[in-house]
Amino acid sequence: MKGDNMRDKAREKFEQLLEIMEELRSEHGCPWDRKQTHESLKPYMIEEAYEVVHAIDENNMDELIEELGDVMLQVVFHSQIARENNEFTIVDVLERINSKMIRRHPHVFKNEGEYSYEQWEKIKAKEKGKKQYSKIGEINKGLPPLMNLRRLIENSFAVDYDPYKEKNIFELLKRDLESLENEGNENNEIELLTHLIYYFVKKERNIDSLLSKAAKEYFEKYKKFENGEDKE
């Protein structure tokens, strides 16, 4: 499908989705959809995002199409609720993301210099009215701790900060484990976690995918035990 035709079709389908949501939330719509709020929909947004990740992990493009649609539905759902509450509309959402992408990519849309992660954080800090900023961003209180640590390490690599570059990460992990074996404390546990996540980020491994596979393997091991197949 050519670019112009695809955009025309996308506009048509997106408008249809907006109309569907309006109908579902109307007086003669669906009782379940009508009673939903921003608060009640929170778990669904999280679930749909994880299902997108699962589809990517499985390299299942048909499933990815469906799950991305479910995420888009959540965006439209929240926007319709906000419109009814006179908070904002889908137009505000689209305008905000469009202007943000243009503003944060001056090297593309204004032909100003080259991309750097530091520049991204500088622009981001300016948007939020901050005079000072960290080159690797801030700790995001809305993210799970594991994700925060992973992102900070990834971002530090982007600005050429690597505290263990000259060290053997396996020796560090060995030292951490020996410390814990010899009645180590919480600091040793923190160092072990940091070094482990550092290793996976350095190797450009998908930690979430590895954790999902580890959970699956652990569950399969338990099922063998439950069925009396595991004699160990």
Results as ranks from 00 to 15, higher is better:
residue 1 M to H: 08
residue 2 K to A: 00
residue 6 M to C: 00
residue 8 D to K: 03
residue 8 D to A: 01
residue 8 D to T: 00
residue 9 K to M: 09
residue 13 K to H: 04
residue 14 F to C: 06
residue 17 L to H: 03
residue 20 I to E: 11
residue 26 S to D: 13
residue 26 S to R: 04
residue 27 E to L: 02
residue 33 D to L: 15
residue 33 D to C: 14
residue 35 K to I: 10
residue 37 T to P: 13
residue 38 H to E: 14
residue 39 E to H: 14
residue 40 S to V: 13
residue 43 P to M: 09
residue 45 M to S: 15
residue 47 E to F: 01
residue 47 E to N: 05
residue 48 E to R: 13
residue 50 Y to G: 05
residue 51 E to L: 05
residue 55 A to F: 01
residue 56 I to K: 10
residue 59 N to E: 12
residue 59 N to D: 06
residue 59 N to A: 08
residue 62 D to E: 03
residue 63 E to G: 04
residue 63 E to W: 03
residue 64 L to H: 01
residue 64 L to K: 03
residue 64 L to G: 00
residue 65 I to E: 07
residue 67 E to D: 02
residue 69 G to P: 00
residue 69 G to A: 04
residue 70 D to W: 00
residue 73 L to F: 11
residue 74 Q to C: 02
residue 75 V to Y: 02
residue 75 V to E: 01
residue 76 V to H: 01
residue 77 F to R: 10
residue 77 F to A: 09
residue 80 Q to C: 01
residue 80 Q to N: 00
residue 81 I to C: 02
residue 81 I to A: 00
residue 83 R to Q: 00
residue 87 E to Y: 02
residue 87 E to M: 10
residue 88 F to L: 08
residue 92 D to E: 07
residue 93 V to T: 04
residue 94 L to F: 09
residue 95 E to G: 02
residue 96 R to V: 01
residue 96 R to I: 03
residue 100 K to R: 14
residue 100 K to H: 05
residue 100 K to F: 14
residue 101 M to A: 05
residue 103 R to G: 03
residue 104 R to L: 13
residue 106 P to Y: 08
residue 108 V to M: 14
residue 112 E to H: 07
residue 112 E to A: 10
residue 114 E to D: 09
residue 117 Y to H: 14
residue 118 E to M: 07
residue 119 Q to K: 15
residue 121 E to S: 10
residue 122 K to T: 08
residue 125 A to K: 13
residue 125 A to S: 15
residue 125 A to T: 15
residue 127 E to Q: 15
residue 127 E to R: 15
residue 128 K to S: 12
residue 133 Y to K: 08
residue 133 Y to L: 05
residue 133 Y to A: 06
residue 136 I to H: 01
residue 138 E to R: 06
residue 138 E to M: 07
residue 140 N to M: 13
residue 141 K to D: 14
residue 143 L to V: 08
residue 143 L to R: 15
residue 145 P to W: 08
residue 147 M to T: 13
residue 149 L to K: 09
residue 150 R to S: 12
residue 154 E to H: 00
residue 158 A to H: 10
residue 159 V to Q: 07
residue 161 Y to P: 02
residue 162 D to G: 04
residue 163 P to G: 05
residue 165 K to T: 06
residue 166 E to V: 04
residue 166 E to Q: 07
residue 167 K to A: 11
residue 168 N to C: 14
residue 168 N to V: 08
residue 170 F to H: 14
residue 170 F to E: 12
residue 171 E to I: 09
residue 171 E to D: 14
residue 173 L to R: 08
residue 175 R to E: 11
residue 175 R to P: 01
residue 176 D to Q: 14
residue 179 S to N: 15
residue 181 E to T: 06
residue 181 E to F: 06
residue 182 N to W: 06
residue 183 E to A: 03
residue 183 E to G: 02
residue 184 G to W: 07
residue 186 E to A: 12
residue 187 N to F: 07
residue 189 E to W: 09
residue 190 I to F: 09
residue 191 E to G: 01
residue 191 E to K: 08
residue 196 L to T: 14
residue 202 K to V: 02
residue 203 K to A: 13
residue 204 E to M: 10
residue 206 N to T: 04
residue 213 K to C: 08
residue 213 K to P: 01
residue 215 A to W: 06
residue 215 A to I: 13
residue 216 K to G: 04
residue 219 F to N: 12
residue 221 K to S: 07
residue 221 K to L: 07
residue 222 Y to K: 11
residue 222 Y to T: 07
residue 223 K to Y: 03
residue 223 K to L: 11
residue 228 G to S: 05
residue 231 K to H: 12
residue 232 E to D: 03
